[in-house]
Simulated assay, not measured.
Amino acid sequence: MYTLTVRDHLMVAHSLPRPAFGPAQGLHGATFVAELTVRARELDENATVLDIGLLSGMLGEVLDGLRYRNLDEHPDFEGRLTTTEALARHIAEGVAERLAASRGTRIVGVSVVLRENPDAWAGYSLDLP
Rank of each mutant, 00 (worst) to 15 (best):
A24S: 14
N117L: 13
I107L: 13
H14L: 08
R41A: 15
L55R: 10
T84C: 11
E85T: 02
I52R: 15
G53S: 10
W121I: 06
L81W: 10
L63N: 04
L128H: 05
R67L: 08
D76S: 12
L128V: 13
L55C: 10
L114M: 08
A96L: 06
T83F: 14
A20D: 08
G29Q: 06
L36K: 05
R41W: 15
N117Y: 15
V113S: 04
S15H: 12
T31Q: 09
L54V: 14
D8S: 08
M11Y: 10
S111M: 13
A34S: 13
G57I: 05
G57F: 10
M58C: 06
Y2V: 04
H28E: 11
L4C: 07
A88R: 01
L16C: 11
E116I: 02
D8K: 01
A40H: 03
S15Q: 13
D76G: 11
L36P: 02
E45C: 09
E116P: 05
V110W: 03
W121M: 14
A40S: 14
M1W: 14
L81V: 05
G53I: 05
A40E: 04
V33S: 08
G123R: 02
D51M: 01
L59P: 00
L114H: 07
A20N: 02
R7H: 14
A40D: 07
G104N: 06
G22W: 11
T3G: 12
V38D: 12
R106L: 15
I107S: 04
N117S: 15
R7L: 12
R98W: 01
M11C: 09
T5R: 15
G123P: 03
D8I: 00
N46I: 01
L55H: 07
G60A: 08
R98P: 02
G109N: 12
G104H: 07
A47S: 11
T48N: 09
G94C: 10
R106G: 12
T48G: 01
A24P: 04
L126I: 11
L27S: 08
L87V: 06
Y124A: 01
L81H: 07
G60E: 04
Y68K: 10
S56P: 01
H14W: 09
H9Y: 11
G22P: 04
Y68I: 04
E78L: 13
L66R: 01
V12R: 00
V62N: 00
L16S: 05
D44L: 05
R67K: 04
L4W: 10
R41E: 15
S102F: 09
D119P: 04
D72K: 00
V12E: 03
E35F: 01
F21M: 10
V62L: 05
L27T: 13
A101M: 02
A24V: 06
L126W: 03
Y68T: 08
D76V: 06
V38N: 09
L16R: 12
L50H: 02
T37P: 09
G65W: 07
T37S: 15
V62G: 01
P129M: 07
G79H: 05
V6P: 00
V108Y: 05
D64Y: 13
D72S: 07
Q25D: 12
H14C: 07
A86H: 12
E93C: 13
V108K: 03
G94E: 03
H90Q: 10
V113Q: 01
A34N: 08
V112Q: 00
E42K: 12
